[in-house]
């Protein structure tokens, strides 16, 4: 679970770096974006001369990572389902519950 947005803290980068290594070892990964975390998959992120967090998240999706963003958090931040990258969806607590129920390890990144 990632609770912070892009370019404010290192959390999204840490999640990406851990996810990449876990993927290369054959693990399956699910990421639930909560609170400002939903901003990491906004399509319109532009980052001239900097790493693009949206592209990093899209790369994870393309590698088979399931990314869901909290629908309520998105609503409170003016983000619509059409604003987030392909392959990701808005989802509620039922999905977070499924992630928690199905996974072997749970990592949470906040403040």
């Amino acid at each position: 679970m990632l609770r912070t947005g892009p370019y404010t803290s290192q959390n999204a980068d840490t999640v990406y770096n851990i996810a990449k290594r876990l993927l290369s070892k054959g693990h399956s990964i699910r990421i639930y974006l909560y609170e400002d975390g939903v901003c990491n998959v906004v399509k319109q992120i532009k980052s001239p001369q900097e790493r693009n967090i949206r592209d990093m998240m899209a790369e994870l999706v393309a590698s088979g990572v399931e990314i869901k963003a909290c629908g309520t958090c998105a609503k409170f931040r003016g983000i619509r389902k059409t604003d987030i990258i392909e392959g990701t969806n808005l989802a509620g607590m039922a999905v977070l519950a499924r992630f928690a129920r199905d996974c072997d390890r749970f990592l949470s990144f906040g403040f």
């Binding site: 851990i18 290594r21 070892k25 390890r105 749970f106």
Partner: peptide
Amino acid sequence: YEGLVELIEKASRIIT
């Protein structure tokens, strides 16, 4: 990071 991932694999639970 490779070592961190090994720690994650070995841990029973992770507390941040």
